[in-house]
Design a binder for these strands. Structure first.
Lengths: 147, 147
DNA sequence: CTACAAGTTAAAGTTAACTTTAAGTCAAGC
DNA sequence: GCTTGACTTAAAGTTAACTTTAACTTGTAG
């Protein structure tokens, strides 16, 4: 078992496609050594870094945010357990916020829709951040960005 | 106060941009009458339909799915409270699934990362649907589609 | 020596949900 | 008669996160 992994091996073991790995490298999320032929070789530690990326995505972080997080890791040594735990410590709040929003929506299904008040103007459940209140063109509205 | 609303009025009252309303109409999610000049006019009931769309999006439905749901409404009369409630009854399960996934991720932050097992191969938290197990090129993988 | 599998790059394509732009119509006010 | 504001359409642009494609290079097996 070699110490360095090919891109195909990393793809198989992480479940992340080779094309995605190249894309991550291009975005600066991961790095690789090169063989004489220009082929990528990954140290075993890369797998954990990739796992972190997948995990963070599930939590809802964008690749830009993940890149920022990864930038906080020490670059003079291989990160250890405490380093990873430190990065993910802030996620709890984010997850809780999202769960709270979903709970609110769930309550709204029976209460808001049930009572017939399904109106964006008045209903705080459908319109918690007073979306209807914004005037002017303003910044581009992204549904995914709102999540 | 007129019985029919212009697109600007509907946009202001719903918080949904005019361009989005036209887009929804193009997608068959909403409909409008036209004046002699070809301008759109909306009956008051359209506001509730639009509110439903916004609400459904927050729950996580795609516009395609919402279109399907809206197709289940009676078309021989204006839908009433019971009709709307019926449509949204199935959302609870969906919301609960998503909440469960988030809870799992939250637990994984302290357990999985904390214990140092952050590995896509072995960890059921980061890899609940055995993502790493899929072989071959397979269908296109969309992060958003997995949510 | 020739196949073949596996790797490389750059550039273009994909998806959802809209927004922006360009070019034009129409009624009302001055 | 002309400007203004609100509206129309069709088509192209935007964003994130990748995938696909095309053209090419390398190491290894036979």
């Amino acid at each position: 078992m070699a110490d360095l992994l090919t891109i195909a091996e990393v793809a198989r073991r992480s479940g992340v496609a080779s094309s995605a790995l190249r894309f991550y490298e291009q975005r600066g999320l991961i790095a690789s050594q090169r063989t004489g032929a220009g082929h990528r070789r990954y140290p075993r530690a890369a797998l954990r870094r990739i796992a972190f990326i997948v995990f963070a995505q599930k939590v809802g972080l964008s690749l830009d945010e993940i890149a920022t997080e990864l930038g906080k890791l020490p670059n003079n040594r291989v990160p250890e357990r405490a380093d990873w735990a430190k990065l993910s410590s802030g996620w709890k709040h984010r997850i809780d916020d999202r769960i709270a929003e979903l709970e609110r929506l769930k309550a709204g299904m029976t209460q808001c829709i049930g009572c017939g008040c399904l109106s964006l103007q008045t209903c705080r459940l459908a319109n918690p951040d007073d979306r209807a209140g914004r005037g002017g063109p303003g910044p581009r509205y992204w549904v995914t960005g709102k999540r």
